[in-house]
């Protein structure tokens, strides 16, 4: 961050510190999500601020003793500035985004939001965040992370044809590009792994405490193709370009083609990729290599065959 003092933060530091005499520089920096250096600079400047007029007694009194701060003589700034509309909306958005993830704290968040709305005059429905629902699995995993318990999940990775059980020390859940991921230590692999939760099914929370601590830095969930992974060329019709967004693999190249556009991906897990092409329902066509074409063709035929063999009795209902 810049070393230019933040005027709004200075105006907020005063009432915040009036309520917290003796707060440490480290605490203040953490609460304001900035550096200790920035806080020291701003406190130095505040010491020269106060009421107009020339008497020294009208200045704000900022005392820094070692690492602790006491502010006095600042009754004119006893209350913080109102949040701006942008800040208000940001808070409400964060609350809306997080509420499903707070577990037992969700009720307290709802109360806090009601108080915010009332104090700031925000219309009842001014913010809605619609993201995929956090299902039971997310909720149970969150509880396991908080409790520090090892879990066993049934997971179908990119390269797996069926789901496999994995024993994990769960570290953190992450919502990334609209999908939930779990960062964890995988005891089977003996390494950190990221699991996409829509590929996981059953979960069992064990009594065993986690043994591998959370690393300081966790990678963003993104598939990094290996150099030996074969390259696949796909022709995308107008109804298939969503594939470019849906795949967490960045295409190596894209280009225009008659009837749509082409994209080249490096694919380490052919079965997973074939499923993706099936999902496009004919709006995406594998051009190359022929092995991948054949796999997609075979999978689609298998689907049709299963459909024709099934009884097909008119069942299922609309439950609107």
């Amino acid at each position: 961050m810049s070393r230019v003092p933040d005027v709004v933060r200075m105006l907020t530091l005063v009432p915040w510190l009036l309520e917290r005499p003796g707060a440490s520089i480290a605490e203040i920096a953490a609460a304001f999500a900035t550096t200790e250096e920035a806080i020291r600079t701003e406190l130095d400047h505040l010491d020269y601020c106060g009421l107009p007029g020339l008497g020294g007694g009208d200045l704000i009194d900022v005392r820094i003793l070692g690492d602790t701060v006491v502010v006095g003589m600042a009754d004119e700034l006893r209350r913080p500035m109102r949040t701006t509309p942008a800040e208000t909306l940001r808070l409400l958005l964060a609350a809306s985004q997080a509420e499903r993830m707070l577990g037992p704290a969700a009720g307290a968040l709802t109360r806090a939001v009601a108080k915010l709305r009332a104090a700031l005059g925000v219309p009842e429905d001014a913010v809605v965040v619609v993201e995929p629902e956090a299902g039971d699995l997310v909720e149970e995993l969150r509880a396991a992370v908080v409790a520090g318990r090892r879990v066993r999940i049934s997971y179908r990775g990119r390269g797996d044809t069926t789901a496999v059980d994995r024993d994990l020390d769960p570290w953190r859940l992450e919502l990334h590009d609209g999908a939930w991921y779990l960062h964890a230590h995988d005891h089977g692999a003996g390494a950190a792994r990221i699991f996409r939760l829509d590929r996981a099914a059953a979960l069992r929370v064990t009594e065993q405490p986690v043994t591998v601590p959370v690393p300081a830095e966790l990678e963003a969930p993104r598939y990094v193709p290996g150099p030996e992974d074969p390259e696949v060329e796909v022709l995308l019709g107008p109804g298939g370009t969503w594939l470019l967004d849906a795949v967490t693999v960045a295409p190596e190249a894209t280009g225009a083609a008659p009837g749509g556009r082409t994209a080249r991906f490096r694919v380490g897990a052919p079965e997973w990729f074939a499923r993706l092409i099936l999902m496009a329902g004919g709006h995406a066509e594998v051009r190359d290599p022929s092995g991948m074409r054949t796999l997609v063709h075979r999978r689609a035929l298998a689907g049709l065959e299963r459909l024709e063999r099934s009884s097909g009795a008119a069942s299922g209902t609309s439950d609107a």
């Binding site: 933040d6 709004v8 933060r9 907020t12 009432p15 915040w16 309520e19 609460a31 304001f32 999500a33 900035t34 209350r79 913080p80 500035m81 109102r82 949040t83 800040e87 208000t88 940001r90 808070l91 958005l93 964060a94 985004q97 997080a98 993830m101 915010l116």
Partner: peptide, 16 residues
């Protein structure tokens, strides 16, 4: 959980 840096000042105001 959502955006610590972008929300710190707003949070400090409402909880000052």
């Amino acid at each position: 959980l959502v955006a610590p840096a972008e929300l710190a000042l707003a949070l400090a105001k409402v909880s000052a």
